[in-house]
Simulated assay, not measured.
Amino acid sequence: MKGPIKALIVDDERFSREELIYLLKAYESIDIVGEADSGDEALMKAIQLQPDVIFLDVEMPRMDGMQVARSLQELKKVPAIVFGTAYPDFAVEAFRHEAVDYLLKPFEEEQLGDAIARLEKKLMPTEPIPSRESKPSKLAVEKDEEIHYLDPANILYVYRDDRLTKIVGKDHVYETKWALKEVEERLREFPFFRIHKSYLVNLDYVARLIPWFNGAYELELRGSKDKLSVSRNYVKELRKQLEL
């Protein structure tokens, strides 16, 4: 699919909906198209809005999440489902409905990040990597109304800051309106690695990995005084990329 993943949020508790919407807004790949506070409204919104995924509360009055999931299978476009509940007892039944994930309340950022990664893999498969011969070797960004062509070897890291993506080079910081995922795609043939949902680093500049807390790490780069946070979801793969 092209474009962001269209999401519908369904929960009979307003606070839970607002919390999940707040957390999801951090992900560029997710576009929240609507919300519903009951199973009946969820089905109506699913028909009207044609979401790609529904974040679906399990325990709701009248029509619960499992009943909604069964009814959704009758639609022409069947959305992916991510269940959410305060109780783990429904997990087995949830996956019988081919749920992408099952989130426990209160929602944890790391758990939600895993769910988004699964959704992206299911709904936004990456395109085949073109041959290197056809790939440009410079990254073009605008600065002061000029177009600068950056050598990826001189980029230390890239990060998302509000609505801009910032590219930190050896001497300058550049800004672009490209989404971080788009920059990541453009740099696929170079040694860049995502260490956090908002950060991408050039592995050639990694100097030190420092334990922080709760399984997370901080990263030091040569040529930079900044310390970057490494999400615990990415630590294992990062070490695999760095170590012989």
Rank of each mutant, 00 (worst) to 15 (best):
G3W: 00
E74T: 15
A140M: 12
G113C: 06
D40S: 13
L104H: 06
A99F: 09
L203N: 09
L180S: 08
S231D: 07
L242F: 12
E142M: 10
L150G: 10
F83A: 05
E120Y: 04
V68M: 01
L219R: 01
D151T: 10
A94S: 11
I129S: 11
A115L: 06
V183A: 14
P4M: 00
K225T: 14
M44P: 00
Y87K: 12
F190E: 15
K135E: 11
A36C: 01
Y149S: 06
V92T: 09
D40K: 14
E18P: 00
E243A: 12
L244P: 08
W178P: 03
I54E: 09
I21N: 05
F83N: 09
V235Q: 13
G84F: 02
R70Y: 12
K177P: 07
L244G: 14
E120Q: 12
I32R: 02
S134D: 05
I210R: 04
M1E: 11
Y149A: 03
L150D: 07
E146Y: 15
E133H: 01
P128I: 01
F192M: 09
D40W: 07
K122W: 14
G34S: 05
L23K: 02
F55C: 02
I54W: 07
E109P: 12
L200W: 10
F107Q: 13
Q111S: 15
G169F: 12
I9D: 03
I195F: 04
V53R: 02
D37S: 03
G84H: 10
P88H: 02
